[in-house]
Amino acid sequence: MDWNFLFVSAVKIVVAFSVLMVLVAYVVLIERRLCAAIQDRLGPNRAGPFGLLQPVADAVKAFLKEDFTPAHVRRAYYWAAPAIVMFPAILNLAVIPFGSRLGDQEMVIADLNIGIVYAFGIASLGVYGIVLAGYAANSKYPLLGGLRSGAQMISYEVSMGLAVIPLFMVVGSLNLGDVIASQQGRLPWLPILPNWAVFQNPMLLLSFVIFLGASFAETNRLPFDMPECEQELAGGYNVEYSSIRFALFFMGEYASMILASAILTTLFFGGWTLPVFGLDRVATAWWQGAAQIGIFLAKMMVFILGFIWVRWMLPRFRYDQLMRLGWNRFLPLALANIAATTVWLWIAS
């Protein structure tokens, strides 16, 4: 047993987990301030300077509220559902390369050679929490929300999985580290742009667009937040939950949003690389390793802001529109994209 490896992994897990949790707390705050600004108001700015202590206040409130279990729920599922919602996001943290090296440690918790397959496999478990919550609540609106989420997330998983296949055909590996390694340097045909996958060729750009659309559906964010639908379903699958259990659903949604941003960054936007100061190579010095973690977080933040902004920009799709978009548009496009990439690679070789 390699004790050093165990210890280092444990430290990485704890740090990555705490960073994720802090990010969740502050992404909620950012969302509230940003949406306030879009709606001409100020948002929560009273707790601490600029409202920076608001997450603390929210957490205290969530813990102190009465944790009410309605009499008609199916208890075991009711208690399990919030935890199940939370855990795919946390498990997926394991394969995200959030930096190259710091000292002599690789900045990824588990360098799997099937990284992305693992990520998809785990992400598809997220639907169980929501469906289970809808079923456990044993009342109409949550059930409708759960059903919708079941249909929606499974449909979009198909297009999502198919959308990234061109990328792996180009890269030739499923390992996320290799994906990043293939995005080093600058574009051969336009050297001011970095050699990130989105810019490499039009097929990968299309892949990115489909993947982005599907991520919105997978994370239940507007314009695809069918399972929640505050207006029609009064909150959907989480209607019967209160207190910290409700907060867990909330945190699960944000955690999966953060993870989706991390995966988007890694797959299409070069992960921790930046083609200046040699920051696109595996770091040799401490400052480089630290800077690359910063770069990764910054790129991720841009995606998170995008997710948030879109929520306050677009109205919700109708359910049939959503399904039509998933099956009639994204799926054929993704399949055609795979074919086009095959032809491209065949001609190029």
Binding site: L34, A36, A37, D40, L42, W309, W312, M313, L314
Partner: peptide, 27 residues
Amino acid sequence: PTLLNGFKVTFRHFWRTAVLRRPVTLS
């Protein structure tokens, strides 16, 4: 076009509130 329009409208409000500091609400 919908995306662009939506972005234009939301950005206008965001700019007015967050950058020019002219929210419609009072503290």
